[in-house]
Simulated assay, not measured.
Amino acid sequence: MKKKQHDWSPADQAEQHYLVQPRTLAGGGDIRHVSEFLRASGWRDRSRTGGPLRMESPDRTLRVAFDPYVLPGGWTIHGRANGPNGEWAAQLGERTPVEIVAGLTDALTRPRAAHAPNVWAPLEEQQWDMRFEGENYVATSPDGTAWMQYHQSTDGSAIWWTGAKDKQGNGWAAHFTPNTPMHLVQAFSAELAGPEPVMRPRGHVPLSAQIRTWSVSVKPSRLIAWQQARITAARASTWARNSAKGSRPRTTAPSYTPAGSVRTRR
């Protein structure tokens, strides 16, 4: 009797991962969660072999970098001055979960929504505690491990601080310069407050008494499929935007030459 063939290979055997909650204390994660989405959205990879990650937007006005080799290491997102918008930057610590970083960096690839942004709305939806502390307006997560602060200077500029920390002092911090577009800060706060756990492989789960974990077995092919779905969505969105730009009607009239006149070549 012929033996039945199995449709799996040793390379695709399930591996142990962990779902971690709260996501704010899950550790940095795989930076390709950010970089591959940007690459699929048409961004250029300016990284040097063996060096820190450096990505640049197609119009060269935005840059995203991750450098773990300097102190303090972490993420830098930078926007050049553009028309009425001034130069801005965001600095995020090395242990900022990539899913939260992607809240901001994914938003860099999308058109700005027509409605006015509200940074606090995602936090209020998740029952964060809102209060004034001196001159700062502060929001704290229900478990007290994550926060977001707002301070308005006398010149009207707004500065944002945010981060997470457990009782052992492990965590991360981030800040946004005054000119950071508010829709980007809102996109960040939405992921900051997200209640869903995030996944980390075995050996990459922080040691903290304030996280909860669930062991799950996942095949490498399944992980690749999840990653590919995210990349495919980025490519489809980019293609749709570029197609819409190409199909827009002309807004300027063609040059007009009166009958009988002759154009002079130069």
Rank of each mutant, 00 (worst) to 15 (best):
Q91R: 15
N82F: 14
Q186P: 04
P58E: 11
V70G: 06
Y256F: 13
G203M: 08
A81C: 02
Q227D: 07
A253G: 06
I77S: 01
G156I: 05
I31G: 00
R222V: 11
K3C: 08
V205I: 10
P72Y: 01
T49S: 13
A146E: 02
D30L: 06
D30V: 00
Q21V: 11
T145R: 12
P206Y: 11
K2H: 10
V198P: 03
T180I: 04
P22N: 06
W226R: 05
I159L: 15
K245R: 15
A121I: 04
D67M: 01
P68L: 08
P58N: 12
Q152V: 11
I31M: 02
P10C: 07
N82Y: 13
E196H: 06
T251W: 09
S215T: 14
V119G: 00
T105E: 01
Q16D: 14
T105Y: 00
A193Q: 03
R60Y: 06
Q127A: 12
F66S: 01
Q16I: 11
P122D: 13
R235V: 12
G171H: 02
R44W: 07
A114E: 04
V185M: 06
P68Y: 10
T145I: 13
I100L: 06
A65K: 07
G203Y: 09
E124K: 11
I31H: 04
H6V: 15
R266I: 13
V185S: 03
P58C: 14
R32W: 04
E56A: 06
K167V: 12
T251K: 12
V198R: 07
A173Y: 11
S57T: 00
V205A: 05
L192E: 02
V138R: 05
T76F: 00
A146G: 04
A233G: 09
S153K: 10
A113T: 14
W88G: 03
L223Q: 07
W161F: 09
P84D: 08
L207N: 12
G134F: 00
T49V: 11
H17Y: 14
D143E: 07
N242S: 10
